[in-house]
Amino acid sequence: METGEIRGDSHIGTTAPHAPHAPHAPHAPHATHAPHATLPVRPTDRAVRAGCSALAALWWLTGLRQASGALRHYLAGTGAPYALDASTLVALPPVRAAVNARLLEAEAGHWSGTDGWQGVRIAPSTSPDWWLAVRDVQYRVIRPNPHYYRVEFRTPFTPFARLHERGLAREFTATGRTGYLPR
């Protein structure tokens, strides 16, 4: 049974959901490079940051709102969680197909309640905006009963370790969740 039109309010998370990492779970920020602001800033680092700032503005002007917002948040340097537009994200064909497959597995009795974290790749041909913003996203399906479900998302945003390591930007976790949707 295919899930129809996305209905219900989108509730955007402000904190990352906590769950054990699934085999395809994203790495935590700082996992493969130096911690925030531990390396000296070089003039080329400031040029890269300025280029990223201009790129974020260009993306905004060309309608790439998700990519622009995520890059601007990174450059703001707070490290605070970033809210994803979950209702738009869940409507993307590869995400919708992955969620539908998980719901079919639930209906077959392979799991119930809260799903484990799964990964899905967003290709540039599917959505250049979401590809630039997150590329890969982790999702899980929460199914309190056979008639309703919601989808939660999380992904680390770590595009330029160099800027993070020099304190010119800060990595963060992007999260979001849909409202309860009918099945």
Rank of each mutant, 00 (worst) to 15 (best):
V120T: 15
E107A: 11
V151A: 10
T158R: 12
A57G: 05
T88G: 10
R96T: 10
V137Q: 01
R154G: 03
L132Q: 10
W131M: 13
Y149F: 15
R162C: 13
R183P: 03
R102P: 00
T173Y: 04
R42L: 15
A22Y: 00
Q66M: 15
P159E: 09
A80R: 14
Q138W: 09
A97Y: 01
A80Q: 12
R166A: 13
R162S: 14
P182D: 00
A19E: 05
G69S: 15
S87L: 08
G109N: 11
F153W: 04
P93I: 07
G8Q: 01
E107M: 08
P182V: 00
R46P: 05
R42T: 15
P144W: 03
R143Y: 00
T32S: 14
P128A: 13
A19W: 01
A16S: 13
P29R: 03
T88A: 15
H24G: 06
T32K: 13
N100K: 09
V48K: 14
F157T: 02
A80V: 05
S10F: 08
R46G: 08
L163H: 06
V120E: 11
V48A: 13
E152V: 08
P26Y: 09
S68L: 12
G79I: 04
G179K: 02
T15K: 08
H36R: 08
G167V: 04
R65K: 14
L132F: 09
R49F: 07
H27K: 13
R49K: 14
H110S: 12
D129T: 10
R183N: 11
P23R: 11
G167I: 10
G109F: 13
A108R: 14
G116V: 05
L61N: 11
L75K: 09
E2H: 06
A22M: 03
H73C: 10
R96F: 10
E107T: 06
R154L: 13
I6S: 01
W111E: 02
A123L: 14
V151C: 06
P40N: 11
T126D: 14
D136P: 03
P144C: 02
P128K: 07
A97I: 03
G4V: 01
W130M: 11
A70Y: 04
F153T: 02
T14E: 10
A91R: 04
H27R: 09
A86H: 07
P35A: 13
P20G: 12
S68W: 10
H21Y: 00
R46A: 15
S10V: 09
G176P: 01
Q118Y: 04
A123K: 08
P128H: 09
A161R: 06
T178G: 04
T62N: 12
P93A: 13
V90E: 01
R49L: 15
G116W: 00
T114E: 12
